[in-house]
Nucleic acid binder design. Structure first.
Lengths: 173, 173
DNA sequence: CTCATTATGATATAACATAACACTATGAAT
DNA sequence: ATTCATAGTGTTATGTTATATCATAATGAG
């Protein structure tokens, strides 16, 4: 059923404004801690990425910003997205060529095994092809399997792209 | 050391012509079994994908084919690649926007848990950022972790993108 | 042989991303 | 406060990857 507490997808009528606010607050805190500047432009791009729980294309953001600020070119958006990715505030979904806000930007310090450097963690996703929503998952067993197989292969992982597409619980009815 | 038998990367001086022949033979067999036509064009594209163990861009293949056949347009190459992907003979690496020959196209029938439909299996990769080589891996523990986490989330996986980038054993010296 | 189906050719364009250079804002050091 | 190096943004142009669409050709079933 849809109310399964283990379903990590966002509930239909959840307080999304709260999500956005939490994300922006976490971003402010994180940048402050890292001595990085969350400029109005970057902040606004982050806010637009958090428009929903669906991944957003760079050109979608470009459109949205044109509506409110007039002329703006791709590099401006890409630079902001690059910055946000570097800070670990946004992730890029390779299989969709799109971006999504990091659902764990508030979890600073509490790194887990697969973390690579300051503020960056391996991001793994479930992506629903029906409703378009993507959620970041965190699974110890998965992390363990990955680090073990890498160890056996003598392979030093620098970056993990793990994106599982399919149908979320709510969309199977 | 480089001779670790668990290192899945191709040995420096291995018989690559053999790899290519095995891949083409497996492809013929597979298409015959599936009632699909491995036309000269498709066969040639597959052969070019198997040029090495590095992922190849669609436009790289386009270049190579122009050298030998003159005028040829992107859709021709993309259609062949689509076909080969549908037959499970080639995989697309999302994080590189490139293609690579399936190292397990010969394994027909012996499907493993995460298989999705005829001839398709979940393909997981190790990608060396140093030498550029990518290898398909198969790990029961990883498959298990994935299916368990999906099960807990009530998520029905249709497609898995798992690409681990880093440095292979040989490139760490 | 006919015909439906599948494959390929050809043109145009869409979608995603970055290089390069100019200009502006910011903050640290004097 | 002024200077200066650095970081951020604006702007133009272009590179890279992928697809829509329609025309033509090859294939195989009946």
């Amino acid at each position: 059923m849809a109310s399964d507490v283990r379903d990590p997808f966002a509930a239909p009528g959840h307080d999304h404004a709260g999500c956005v606010m939490a994300a922006l607050d976490a971003a402010e805190a994180r940048c402050a801690r890292a001595g990085q500047r969350l400029t109005p432009l970057r902040r606004r791009v982050l806010e637009l990425v958090w428009r929903g729980h669906d991944p957003v294309g760079a050109y979608d953001i470009l459109e949205l910003m044109r509506d409110e600020r007039g002329r703006i070119a791709p590099p401006t958006v890409y630079r902001a997205l690059d910055f946000l990715c570097r800070q670990g505030l946004v992730h890029r979904l390779e299989s969709l060529q799109a971006f999504i806000g990091c659902g764990q930007a508030g979890d600073h310090g509490t790194d887990h095994g697969t973390d690579h450097g300051i503020g960056h963690h391996a991001a793994h996703f479930l992506i629903c092809q029906d409703c378009g929503e993507a959620v970041e998952i965190r699974d110890g067993q998965l992390d363990g399997a990955i680090s073990q197989l890498a160890g056996r292969a003598g392979f030093a992982i620098a970056n993990e792209t793990i994106e599982l597409s399919g149908r979320c619980a709510a969309c199977q009815s």
